[in-house]
């Protein structure tokens, strides 16, 4: 006798199967078949659940984690300092970058002395967990509620700075993802990434 039978089922969902002989009605199949017909016909006339993408879209949460954006500061300078913390935090190894030193005449382009001359995210590797955003000490990277569109080539899924950095004249609103709680969390020096 197995242990299970003594203590019963833990989930309480186990069922005792019976192998009883089928009745005549069950053996001629027909009642069951007509029962099946009724069910399928019921579904035939039921309202269907299709969402006609792209004409129709499913409503998504305001803090949806979609395509990334590399933010600029109020003066339009890129915030990212190429510290690589996001790449380190990324569980999917999706981020890669090359750092460069800011020149005298580039003061208006980059906020910090060091900046990312190349910054790439592989959208096929990314699992949209948002850890990069959490790791960033410069408030530079954020996930937006924009969906990464489909593509024919794998290489087209590697997004560089040309796609990721927000245009100066078309700022991306990420205030929904920067709730006071998030900001407080980011300033908390007890958290390892902020120390």
């Amino acid at each position: 006798m197995s242990v299970n039978q003594n203590i019963g089922s833990l989930s309480g969902r186990s069922k005792i199967v019976s192998n009883k002989k089928m009745t005549f009605a069950e053996r001629i199949y027909l009642p069951a078949i007509f029962g099946g017909f009724r069910i399928t016909l019921g579904h035939f006339f039921k309202k269907n659940t299709t969402i006609q993408y792209p004409e129709e879209t499913r409503p998504i949460a305001e803090i949806y984690r979609g395509k990334h954006v590399l933010k600029r500061d109020d003066e339009g300078r890129e915030r990212c300092t190429a510290c690589g913390l996001c790449a380190l935090a990324c569980p999917a190894e999706a981020i890669t970058m090359i750092a460069a030193e800011r020149k005298e005449d580039e003061m208006t382009l980059y906020r910090e002395e060091k900046y990312a001359s190349m910054y790439e995210i592989d959208m096929l590797r990314c699992i949209f967990c948002g850890l990069c955003e959490e790791a960033c000490p410069k408030e530079a990277i954020f996930l937006t509620n924009e969906i990464v569109p489909s593509n024919l080539e794998r290489s087209d899924f590697i997004y560089g700075k040309d796609v990721l950095v927000e245009p100066v004249d078309k700022r991306v609103d990420i205030s929904q993802r920067q709730t006071p709680e998030v900001l407080a969390f980011k300033k908390d020096k007890n958290q390892s990434h902020n120390s």
């Binding site: 035939f44 269907n48 659940t49 299709t50």
Partner: peptide
């Protein structure tokens, strides 16, 4: 089509 409708699709 019929398969779709039977499965609540279009």
């Amino acid at each position: 089509k019929v398969a779709g409708f039977f499965q609540d699709r279009l």
